[in-house]
Design a protein around this nucleic acid. Structure first.
Ligand SMILES: [Mn+2]
Ligand SMILES: [Mn+2]
Ligand SMILES: [Zn+2]
Ligand SMILES: [Zn+2]
Lengths: 150, 150
DNA sequence: TTTCCACTTGCCACTGAGTTGCATCTGCCT
DNA sequence: AGGCAGATGCAACTCAGTGGCAAGTGGAAA
């Protein structure tokens, strides 16, 4: 259940996103607002197919959703991730959350596919002969998550 | 150009692979030998499409190549990788090269898609509250490779 | 406010990668 | 050599992602 307060908060966040939309030279359209609203409402990253399926009953087209997602990605409002299952997943690029992938290491479970955030895990990289560590880099570990390991 | 010596060496390697094939309960077939020969001859990982295209003129079918690649992967003769471009790539799992992904860290270039081996780079992982490091884990860094960074 | 056109949308067709069913064929155990 | 589980060829199909194009509309400028 979504409380009245939470609903208003989501609305506010969508409004803020529309500002960034316009700042990026994109028009405010019903389809774009709908896509953004879905992303705001979701905790996990969504695939194009998932979003399209949700918005189809409201008359929005797959291709429109697709183009909006890529446009929003170019404009920096959304990030596109590849979790290794050959499907692009899109998530909101919230303010202050820029470069989420670089904030902390992530573990991609090789069994269930879950992407686990590891904010407290430290990873120390010691460069070696020839190779210099790139400025912007994200650390992704692949292995079994705690649930699948047990 | 392939020297006579190199050709004989490749032949020997394919023979050895056929032994592992049989040990894994798979029959020696013309299609499987052809697929293995391609993988032996290639330095880089090949996609199913690439291999199928090479073998098509010899009368081998896409589906057969596909099923062979997955069967060979299950049998442990071949490893299947996802480099982030939504295409599976297959490479020979040579003896002593088992678990290549866990031997050393790898860098996936976010620009050109190249997978760089970093055998000399040390990565120290410090587990933290709650999360315990899984036994088998591979480290994948994402960022610009040296070429794309310069 | 109304106008107007570049930007968007809906629809449809298409590619490319991966997958499956099924009749036919063949490796290899006996 | 004979027999059959396993493998192949062919064709059809799913699924994610794209492209073309005519019709529609957001919003800046008049
Ligand atoms: Mn991938
Ligand atoms: Mn390597
Ligand atoms: Zn898991
Ligand atoms: Zn690169």
């Amino acid at each position: 259940m979504v409380t009245r307060k939470a609903a208003r908060q989501a609305e506010t966040e969508v409004d803020a996103l529309v500002d960034r939309l316009r700042a990026g030279g994109l028009r405010r359209t019903a389809a774009r607002v709908a896509v953004l609203a879905e992303l705001v409402a979701s905790v996990a990253a969504l695939s194009h197919g998932e979003i399209a399926e949700i918005l189809a009953p409201m008359g929005f087209d797959r291709a429109t959703v697709f183009r909006n997602l890529t446009d929003l990605t170019s404009a920096g409002l959304v990030v596109r991730r590849d979790l290794g299952d050959h499907v692009w997943r899109f998530a909101l690029q919230r303010d202050g959350e820029a470069d989420h992938g670089r904030q902390h290491p992530h573990l991609l479970c090789s069994d269930c596919g879950t992407l686990v955030c590891l904010p407290d895990v430290k990873v120390k990289i010691t460069p070696a002969r020839g190779w210099k560590r790139a400025a912007k880099m994200e650390v992704q570990l692949k292995g079994l998550c705690d649930i699948c390991a047990s």
